[in-house]
């Protein structure tokens, strides 16, 4: 007996449809070929069966395919509205017009209008940071009114101002006496608020800036700036801390004084502002020989930790003694 069939030979048998001589003799080879043949026959059967079923499930097409006389007529292509485009367009227009008219009529009805009036719109608040307020720490000033401050009763002095001294309102609901930031002052019995030393005239809080009284700036009384009477900076003590010198450049000796071997001390009074810078430098005790000027130049370059009141920096008056000694 010859060798068994290879897969190539079996495929050849299947492809050509011919049976080799060996397959006729060898049982195992014959059964192998038969196995594939039967599988392929089953496959063919299944395809044919399926195809026949699929064709028989579509009788209407088959019938027309099999030559029954059917005269084809050209049916014009119809759009979305089956040829009723004009009717559809008109009805759409009517419906839309009706809706708009209904809304307009509804707007004229009283109850709807009332409902709309009751509606409170919420507008998103402006969350940008507020612009910095102008510094109002100095002296007294009126409410920027046109006329000068008139003679009147000075409001009660208080360490903090809750209600600025404005002209009285008729029967306030929650009365609170107006105050100014100032030490105790002589009282004056009068109807309106004003400076006890001011002039008579139409009631006015003065033409200064700020919320005090008088022509100055700030919450105090008078022409100065900051709190207190007559204006000016705070003085250390009583809740106001003294400024602390941080940078103290030494003063230079003037040529003239050096030659003359002049020594001594110059007393300078300054106002240390909120930023710790010396302002309003005044020589209170002079020494001469150009040393006063040198002392002022040196003090100008000094830097301070500002004096504090209620945790906030305030302008505070300070006195500095500048010593000039020759070694």
């Amino acid at each position: 007996m010859t060798q068994h069939l290879t897969w190539e030979q079996i495929s050849d048998c299947l492809i050509e449809g011919a049976v080799s001589a060996h397959a006729n003799e060898c049982g195992s080879c014959r059964s192998e070929v038969a196995r594939f043949e039967s599988a392929l026959t089953n496959f063919r059967g299944s395809v044919r069966h399926w195809s026949d079923q699929a064709l028989s499930n579509r009788p209407e097409r088959s019938r027309s395919a099999l030559g029954s006389r059917i005269v084809s007529t050209t049916i014009p292509a119809r759009g979305m509205y089956s040829g009723n485009e004009i009717k559809a367009g008109m009805s759409s227009l009517l419906v839309n017009a009706a809706i708009v008219t209904l809304l307009l009529i509804a707007g004229t009805v009283q109850p709807i209008q009332k409902k709309l009036m009751d509606y409170v719109p919420l507008i998103a608040p402006n969350l940008r940071p507020l612009p910095p307020k102008p510094e109002v720490a100095k002296g007294g000033g009126g409410g920027a009114q046109n006329s000068e401050v008139t003679k009147g009763k000075l409001p009660k002095p208080a360490p903090r101002e809750f209600v600025p001294p404005v002209q009285p309102v008729d029967q306030p609901r929650l009365p609170m006496p107006a105050t100014i930031v100032a030490p105790d002052m002589p009282t004056l019995s009068a109807q309106n608020i004003g400076d006890p030393l001011g002039k008579l005239g139409i009631p006015s809080a003065g033409n200064g800036l700020g919320i005090g009284i008088g022509p100055g700036k700030g919450p105090g009384v008078g022409p100065g700036s900051g709190g207190g009477v007559g204006g000016g900076a705070y003085k250390p003590g009583g809740g106001v801390s003294a400024p602390i010198a941080l940078v103290k450049p030494e003063p230079e000796y003037s040529e003239e004084a050096r030659k003359a071997k002049w020594s001594g001390s110059v007393t300078v009074q300054i106002v240390v502002d909120e930023n710790g810078l010396p302002q309003d430098i005044q020589v209170t005790k002079a020494l001469g020989m150009g040393l006063d000027q040198k002392a002022v130049e040196a003090v100008k370059r000094w830097r301070f930790k500002p004096g504090m009141k209620d945790g906030k920096p305030v302008p505070v008056i300070a006195t500095i003694e500048v010593n000039f000694r020759l070694l």
């Binding site: 395809v47 399926w50 195809s51 026949d52 064709l55 395919a65 099999l66």
Partner: peptide, 15 residues
């Protein structure tokens, strides 16, 4: 011709 060949053509395309 259609009648004769349709099942065969259909079967081939279906498969």
């Amino acid at each position: 011709l259609v009648k004769l060949h349709r099942p065969r053509i259909f079967r081939f395309i279906l498969a």
